[in-house]
Amino acid sequence: MSDEIKVKMTDVHKTFGKKVVLDGVTLEVKKGESLVIIGGSGTGKSVTIKCIQGLLTPDSGSIRVDGEEIVGLSAREMERINAQTGMLFQGAALFDSLNIWENVAFGLIQGKKMKRAEAKEIAIKKLAQVGLDADVGMLYPDEVSGGMKKRVGLARAIAADPELIFFDEPTTGLDPIMSDVINDLIRSCVKDLGATGITITHDMSSVRKIADKVAMLYKGKIIWYGDVAEIDRSGNPYVEQFINGRADGPIQMEIRG
């Protein structure tokens, strides 16, 4: 871990129509660090990382990746930034029309213009890294289970050896054992690559396993930020309510989103 800043968000605002989702998010992640963003459903965790990837444009504020301002970059320039990032989507977002190794190799073939045979070799290696056999590569996404899809999504995210990887609710919808497997894989993949990781979750076991630093998002702002070791003695009533999963406390669930 170095002192270099990988991602820095400053006072980022984002609204959809009248709905304020991000209301001045300020956050930084150091190179090689693993940041986990926690917060209830619909608090704008996915919106936050979509802004960093240029999938959504903030209304105001600054986002710097490796010191370069990315708000306002053209699609073509954003491609250059995205070439060194990977993303594991909440529902894996595998391409139905392609088989599994083609999914994993997609960024190499289409994005990096690698030869198919060469890309396939790397895809098979990455599949092995997430514990999947080479034969699985010939199956199609609708032929495998939810846990396997997540693994394939993970293999695809790390296929191009990214420097920055995003994980959007990697364990949601998985059984506890598979969740733990995925958490371990995320931990090892990020460490092996020496990459920076930004993970979204509301699963506390993921937090404890994956995080170096934790940030809690509530009502469009980061209301707590600190080391994962400090989370149990944060002294912040919002964080305490969240990690203990209590219904009563300062956080009032919005019944109508």
């Binding site: 240029g54 999938l55 491609e79 995205n82 993303m87 989507f89 997609f106 289409q110 695809r156």
Partner: peptide
């Protein structure tokens, strides 16, 4: 979105 993140 996945396409975009894969530089496509």
């Amino acid at each position: 979105d996945a396409l975009t993140t894969l530089s496509t």
